[in-house]
Design a protein around this nucleic acid. Structure first.
Lengths: 340, 340
DNA sequence: TAGATTTGTGTAATCGATTACATAAAATCA
DNA sequence: TGATTTTATGTAATCGATTACACAAATCTA
């Protein structure tokens, strides 16, 4: 029939109790071989499937993990989720996804919904939660639910995080551009109230200072991660009295927009101008003029975030420690910044 | 403390029963204003959060929906999932994602896990489930759990589906290439045991026949969706005595590989050779030679699949009908196939 | 063979929320 | 005022699985 089979149905069928059925199904040692065999056969015949909801309610363990991202259909986040799913699936966890659209209310709402759903852990890339809302995060910690930030993190006590070394990535990229002979490097920044963008900015700044190059504020432009803003930023830069000869963009999309616009101005890349992106979006490799960029190993990052969660779940002793994992970024030096 | 507050805790605090608390929280009319106010305040003060697991167990409704895709980190599937999430979130459903990696065992396993988790519906893009395993699908139907295929579907009784009109897309694309003056059109096919690829092939074939152009079997190559296979296929085509002057690739990635290889052979696109892709991957637009392609409106497709699920859930009367939605594809005619 | 031990099942509580039914108290009516 | 209706609350079952505890039967020991 259409109804679901429960252990009670099996029990009635065999004229035993549900407890015995449960024991047989769970390989409990206190059960006779004959009964176990009978139960297993009957369960199979009646097409029994364990109701994980009931199990979850009793055990207090849902075997679900929530993942919160700004938006799922970007290569980076989709890849992180892939990594998470692949690490968690073999351990019997399922992944619930939530999007915030960079909206802090959605972020709070998603956290609450996940808590209500009794998830065993939350992995998230924070949108832009102002500090006054930190208590929503702290509540998760208080409930002893493992929380792991990936990529976009926030310094909160007892919260783990997995990121790449954004400072290093940025420092090395700037250094690379300098070595290519670019001495006037413009910088496209993201919202610096987010740690990753602040770290990247510091890496850029430090590399310039280490090379005795003063910071030119006109070269620093805050953009959103899309093609149009990259184009617009280039217009501004080219209108300067002393325009730059390189751009380090913390967004691949903006880097692409920049390249388009530079070409329209008949500026030769990389001969006259170098461009470096960030994120290793698939298209950067495919372009005829391939775009140099920083690879963030998103799948690895997802796997690592999942691993940090699993370690926490499995070591109840180390109750309130937060683990910080920093992955090394990989500079992918391609045509857009290679002057040979 | 770290413990969770339940309605029993609130009841004890106020010296009433859990039933009354429940009624107050659910705006049950049979409750006095004063009690309701008191309960609400106390719940708030004690930071009460409803345990959705308990609710789910009692009501038989988990408010979770499972989504099964081959792989989440492709633009198409990530976008569909985005659409699904955005339609389902306002209705109070959460989305559980599963990947199959095109593996039929994983597909079956995922279906079973979702059923055990008591999901209220399953939305999936089928991998390559052979017919002898149809009963795993039919079991879902039997349990009266709404099942919706998107993109990659299978004809199974009572199962809904949302697809684009692959036949039309393919027919129109072929027609377009003919109009551009290409009379020798090669075709990169996917695995034709999947309906979508069979439909696309039929569209291609029909357009040629309608224009009195015989099918040349040498022009038809089955590929996997990646750049390398596109390159290799072009090598084969160019080695023919009578090579083609256009390619219609059912994969954008293969189309890109084809373009790369054609350029290496100094063949001019679109003057000497036209290329048309399928899927509207982001990079197709960004290329210096932008690639013509078919847009499948994945976000729309996801939203529609979610809507079909919601309609089914909300109309219990129409118990076992399957709804079939066919979206119109959009041809994006770009430089790679535009001869002025 | 009486007593101790082992083995296999049953009983009933539990997880947290909802709700049909019962019932006491309050309000309304005649 | 006594009967009737309304209102608010309590009681207890339910969803499906697990498990501490109890206990009867089987097996072992001396």
């Amino acid at each position: 029939m259409t109804e679901k089979t429960t252990i009670y149905d099996i029990a009635k069928e065999l004229n035993i109790t549900a407890a015995t059925v449960s024991r047989a199904l769970n390989n409990n040692p206190k059960i006779s071989q004959s009964t176990r065999k009978l139960v297993l056969e009957t369960a199979n015949r009646m097409n029994y499937k364990q109701n994980r909801l009931a199990l979850a309610l009793r055990s207090g363990k849902s075997n679900n993990v929530g993942v919160i991202v700004p938006r799922i259909n970007t290569n980076f986040f989709a890849s992180v989720i892939r990594g998470i799913e692949e690490s968690l699936h073999p351990e019997g966890y399922q992944v619930i996804i939530c999007q915030t659209h960079e909206n802090e209310n959605r972020e709070i709402e998603n956290i609450n919904t996940l808590l209500n759903a009794q998830v065993d852990g939350i992995l998230m890339s924070i949108s832009n939660l102002p500090d006054e809302n930190n208590h929503y995060i702290e509540r998760v910690v208080q409930k002893n639910i493992p929380l792991v930030f990936f990529d976009r993190k926030k310094e909160i006590k007892h919260v783990s995080s997995v990121t790449i070394d954004d400072y290093q990535a940025s420092y090395q990229t700037t250094q690379h551009l300098l070595e290519q002979g670019c001495d006037k490097i413009a910088y496209f920044s993201g919202d610096r109230s987010l740690e990753i963008y602040e770290d990247r900015y510091r890496g850029y700044e430090k590399a310039l200072l280490d090379n005795n190059i003063p910071i030119n504020k006109d070269y620093i432009i805050t953009i959103k991660s899309n093609v149009v803003e990259g184009r617009e930023a280039v217009e501004k830069l080219l209108a300067l009295d002393n325009p730059p000869n390189a751009i380090f963009s913390t967004s691949d999309f903006a880097a692409l927009g920049a390249i388009q616009k530079l070409k329209e101005h008949d500026i030769k890349i990389p001969e006259d101008f170098c461009v470096f992106g960030f994120g290793n979006e698939p298209f950067t490799k495919f372009m005829e003029l391939s775009i140099s960029t920083v690879d963030q190993s998103p799948v690895e990052m997802g796997k690592m975030a999942a691993q940090v969660f699993l370690d926490k779940i499995n070591n109840v002793d180390k109750k309130k420690s937060g683990k910080t994992v920093v992955l090394m970024p990989k500079l992918l030096i391609r045509q857009s910044s290679t002057r040979i």
